[in-house]
């Protein structure tokens, strides 16, 4: 479980986060949604300690994260997997070396075992056979999937994904969403996903938090999204006339049944 308590963050005089408190439960896909520039990435980076908040606290299973020393932080981070918005693959290493890097660093497996593990991860993200390619030789969507493979290779207890399916075609995006959901349920992972993808919200949103103007503007799950009367959330999720019609139809169908 991860808990954020009253997080504030400003860059100079730009107040990005204005007092956010939230709890993220294990075995659930926790989604953070919000407009571009709402502060999703900043919030996620605060949760993992890459950005220090102006004030506020983060707890990992009741351990105050910011009170730990560097060594203790590293111990927690060995249980963390993270996909960056820009993938952040090491460009001087091949795909296989990228995914193997955490194993090389922290596991006692033999090379053959590590290879098996890498191939298993690549298959899970539906990308077999690219082991020897360099990140610059594969597409942005493929890089995202390699990033996910690298994030899950050590079976993390906490998984952070910054826009896992931006830049993917709808079919692959769905696949990635399902994959993240599956491993979350299977291994009881505390998963936190940043997204502004409508489909993800409706498919895998166990626990949705809507950031708006630096505040937590709405909380709920995917079923409640449909019925929300929160104007900001409605205009964010059902942005197009087409989606608004779909919503009306879905609500009508629901009230009939």
């Amino acid at each position: 479980m991860i808990r954020a308590e009253n997080i504030f963050k400003s860059f100079d005089d730009n107040e990005v986060l204005k007092g956010i408190s939230m709890e993220f439960l294990p075995g659930k896909t926790n989604l953070i949604i919000g407009r571009s520039g709402a502060g999703k990435t900043v919030f996620l980076k605060i949760l993992v300690g890459l950005i220090i908040p102006t004030s506020g606290k983060v707890y990992y299973d009741d351990i105050d994260f910011f009170s730990l020393n560097k060594k203790q932080i590293r111990e927690i981070r060995m249980q963390v997997g993270m996909l960056f918005q820009g993938s952040a693959l090491f460009d001087s290493m091949t795909v296989e070396e990228n995914i193997r890097f955490p194993l090389d660093m922290f596991s006692n497996m033999s090379l053959a075992e590590k290879r098996d593990r890498v191939n298993w991860c690549l298959e899970r993200v539906n990308l077999p056979g690219v082991n020897d390619k360099y990140p610059s030789e594969i597409s942005g969507g493929m890089q995202k999937r390699v990033g996910i493979a690298r994030a899950i290779v050590l079976s993390p207890k906490y998984l952070f994904c910054d826009e896992p399916n931006s830049g993917l075609d709808p079919r692959t995006a769905l696949l990635i969403d399902e994959l993240i959901q599956d491993i979350t349920y299977e291994h009881n992972i505390t998963t936190i996903i940043n997204t502004h993808d409508m489909n993800s919200v409706m498919e895998i949103g166990d626990n949705i938090a809507f950031l708006h103007q630096g505040r937590l503007a709405w909380r709920g799950n995917k079923d409640q999204v449909l019925e929300t009367e929160n104007e900001e959330l409605k205009s964010f999720i059902f942005a197009s006339p087409f989606l608004q019609r779909l919503r009306t139809q879905a609500l009508a169908a629901k009230s009939r049944s």
């Binding site: 980076k45 993992v48 890459l50 590293r74 111990e75 927690i76 981070r77 060995m78 963390v80 997997g81 993270m82 960056f84 952040a88 090491f90 890097f101 955490p102 660093m105 922290f106 050590l154 952070f160």
Partner: peptide, 8 residues
């Protein structure tokens, strides 16, 4: 940052 997150 990616390496830091791995615990390196």
């Amino acid at each position: 940052d990616a390496m830091e997150i791995m615990g390196v």
